[in-house]
């Protein structure tokens, strides 16, 4: 009396993987959207300074970066080993900052212009002289909101 017969005998049923590509694509799109490719070629070496009381830099489009540091090895023959300023993709001097800021401001939406922030990314060993000059130039350019870029401090204690 084999009344209750198993419908299938043995053999694992394969899980339907048809929706797997969909899931993966979803993840893919998420990462594609959130990814920011590095926009500039770093020509100066920067070891970030460290601090603890950090604020996050929100809204990338409002931020203009100024990099300060010793030129990378391959540029040292040309530009020396003193700390230099890098704006966008090239080395610059302090007087260039004003036009750089003006240009960055022009590229912004008018409503965003007052919120413009300038982030100074400087090497931790860089002397303050350069940075003071930059600060003066920024004041002249009326870019008063600044941010001293720093990384979270790793406690050594």
């Amino acid at each position: 009396m084999a009344k209750f017969r198993k419908k299938k005998s043995g053999g694992q049923t394969a899980i339907n993987t048809a929706s797997l590509p969909d899931i993966v694509f979803m993840l893919l799109f998420f990462f594609m959207v959130s990814t920011t490719m590095k926009e500039v070629d770093m020509k100066v070496q920067i070891k970030p300074a460290q601090a603890t009381e950090l604020a996050k830099l929100e809204k990338k489009e409002l931020v203009t970066f100024i990099y300060v540091g010793v030129p990378a090895k391959k540029f040292q023959s040309l530009y020396g080993s003193e700390p230099r300023i890098q704006l966008n993709d090239q080395f610059a001097t302090v007087p260039d900052i004003q036009s750089y800021i003006a240009q960055a401001r022009d590229n912004m939406k008018e409503s965003d212009q007052p919120k413009m922030t300038t982030s100074i990314k400087a090497d931790r060993e860089c002397p303050m002289g350069v940075i003071t000059d930059i600060k003066q130039a920024l004041r002249k350019a009326a870019a008063l909101k600044i941010n001293y870029s720093a990384a979270e401090k790793v406690d050594v204690k």
């Binding site: 009326a142 008063l144 941010n147 870029s149 720093a150």
Partner: peptide, 13 residues
């Protein structure tokens, strides 16, 4: 990378 740093306001020129 969420850029972090110390925010400051410079006095106007």
């Amino acid at each position: 990378d969420t850029d972090t740093g110390l925010a400051r306001l410079l006095p106007p020129m």
